[in-house]
Design a protein around this nucleic acid. Structure first.
Lengths: 151, 151
DNA sequence: CGCTGTCTGATTGTGCGCAATTTATTATAA
DNA sequence: TTATAATAAATTGCGCACAATCAGACAGCG
């Protein structure tokens, strides 16, 4: 027993035994593969996620938007300024509460949604997994994420 | 049919229907949670991954190391310089091929391995999943990663 | 009214992450 | 044996990502 323990002393810090490393590597690879289908829209993956939130939920304050896409103000503020500079969104203070910044789609931003519907098709076969495995993976990730949010 | 198609036109770009978003969000959250257990070692998650590769495989060229941890020279070069500046690794050109840069652990870097063995314990309950689910998740991610690498 | 504390974003600083380009070295081929 | 091509890192440029800090706005209380 002691022997086994000694032999396995470093087993837990082997790369191949990590769960988080493939998670981290897989996420990076997927984001990298979004680049091509997103290039006609001239959006990064993160910008695409932000736009999806706005397409789905309409106008949101920066805080609400940050919750949806899980980004803080340090990332979101400059990103939103870039989207505003391109005329895709507007940023305006609420008159009822000047602290809050309301993010809304411009017409140009709304129109971009039409091009965006083709992105998921282009990404369909990105992960070489069966339909059942994809669902299983999504379910596990959603569960993991929920578990981490509530703690 | 046409009706259904029209109604579901934007279904695929809803945040909640994305597979890649929870993957991306989950990976970020996990990396964030590594911060605390890694702070005694004064390593970022990426640096930890690089050190794991060196602890496991010994000396590697920058190129080989990059393959193991899936990082390119643009990320790796400055990261390795920071680790070298802290005395954890050495960087030296091979005399047989001056293009290649051999990365090796210093004694200090080797010693850090002893502290690192406690990191996985601290992260054990990070993901609120059953043992079986964790294995399933790892298996799916490994498969997805393999599938993306070979294409 | 003025004080105090909280709320909401903005800013700052450091470190990835990666495409694209550059530099230096080695291999090859005319 | 020079040209030429391939290789391996380094550098550049831009955009996240996030902790920490800052600043303005609001709410509530004396």
């Amino acid at each position: 027993m002691e022997n086994t323990h000694t032999a396995d002393r470093y087993e837990a810090i082997r790369l191949r035994n990590q769960l988080c490393f493939p998670l981290y590597a897989c996420a990076k690879e997927v984001v990298r593969r979004y680049r091509e289908p997103l290039s006609p829209l001239d959006l990064t993956y993160t910008q695409y996620v932000v736009m999806m939130a706005l397409w789905e939920f309409g106008s949101l304050t920066e805080g609400e938007l940050g919750e949806k896409v899980r980004l803080d103000s340090g990332t979101l503020a400059p990103l939103l300024k870039r989207l505003e500079a391109r005329g895709l969104i507007s940023r305006e203070r609420l008159c009822t509460n000047e602290r809050k910044l309301l993010i809304s789609l411009t017409e140009k931003g709304e129109i971009l949604k039409e091009e965006a519907v083709h992105v998921p098709e282009a990404m369909r076969d990105c992960l070489d997994l069966q339909e059942e495995e994809l669902q299983q993976l999504k379910q596990l990730l959603d569960k993991a994420l929920t578990g981490m949010t509530s703690r």
